[in-house]
Simulated assay, not measured.
Amino acid sequence: MIVLGRNFVRTHLTHQDTIPLMRRAMMALSRGETIQPLRSILRMEAGRMFGVMPGALGPRGVFGAKLVSVFPGNAEQDLQSHQGGILLFEPEAGRPVALVHAGEVTAIRTAAASAAATDALARRGASRLAVLGCGEQGAAHIEAISKIRTLSEVTVWGRSFERTQAFARRMGERTGHAVEAVEQARDAVANADIVCTVTSSADPVLLGSWLAPGTHVNLVGSSYAGPVEVDHDLVANSRFFADHREGVLAQGAEFLAAREAGLIDDSHVVGEIGQVYAGSLTGRETPDQVTVYKSLGHVVQDLASAQHLYERALEEGVQASEF
């Protein structure tokens, strides 16, 4: 079995590679070609969680599981919030062939999936990006979105203005974009064409009334039923897409909260992003429409990434260990 650590993942799983990987994985999911039960989440104290995500890329494709802990407080210790591994099995004899660093894959594939959705749903000329949240996903989303749109403006907001300023400086140096830190979330999104919410907040940090017509929003930070990053108004007045309909109906916190408030029903989920990629579902209908992509993250994304990395490892002659 080959063990692929964080540095290998960071080097060989680029956004340029991962964005098309995510498109293909999500189209396969929407076509029913993959096998993916709902994830199992063990909730612990202080917002800590442990998740088990099994799946297969088709009945004869690679299969496996991601085992991952989520510790929100890790950011204060300069550690990734997601810790764990993706165990990849080959389909011929059912052998485990690779163990891949789950935290780094999660960081890259989540942002790449948002970028693919943004490419499909945002207006062609969208160039002003606002990111709410200054952690690892904030950084990854700026990098990924810049691969599918030419960004003229990047604005970031976080709960600590001092940390937001430091984040903006780092991202400006890393990407070459002018990244501006602001003290109020409302100011960050006022002129944005694209908004990404990547916080760990339990309560809304973004209100629908703040958005300009035609904005596209990626809801990313909440990955289970409970914490909500946006208010009911934004959900109810948007064209709302799921990464996976079954997952959002069961675990999409913002959708569930708006439904519980009686503002929408299940039909408000227009469909899955994979259907938009395949051309079987219309994405944006009008220039002034607010579109939303709800990201929960799915094991097919992890498995597609792990398979790509395993194949690269074989090409480079990475040695396997006995298992």
Rank of each mutant, 00 (worst) to 15 (best):
R159G: 05
F161R: 14
R163E: 15
T164I: 09
A166P: 07
A168Q: 07
R170P: 06
M171A: 04
G172T: 13
E173W: 09
Q184D: 11
A185F: 08
R186Y: 01
V189I: 03
V189K: 10
N191Y: 01
N191F: 05
A192M: 02
D193A: 12
D193E: 10
I194P: 04
T197K: 00
T199Q: 08
T199E: 06
S201D: 02
A202T: 15
P204R: 13
L206F: 03
L207I: 01
L207T: 05
G208V: 01
S209N: 10
S209M: 05
S209H: 10
W210G: 04
H216C: 01
V217G: 05
N218A: 09
L219Q: 01
L219V: 04
V220Q: 10
S223I: 09
Y224A: 11
G226F: 01
P227A: 10
P227L: 11
P227H: 08
V228S: 07
D231L: 05
H232P: 06
V235E: 10
A236M: 11
N237M: 04
N237S: 14
S238W: 07
S238V: 03
R239K: 07
H244C: 10
E246S: 13
L249T: 07
A250L: 00
A250G: 04
E254Y: 06
F255V: 00
F255S: 03
A257T: 04
A257Y: 04
A258L: 04
A258V: 01
G262L: 11
D266N: 15
S267Q: 12
V269T: 07
G271A: 11
E272T: 13
A278K: 11
G279H: 15
G279N: 13
S280H: 12
S280E: 15
G283E: 00
T286E: 15
T286V: 08
P287R: 01
V290Q: 15
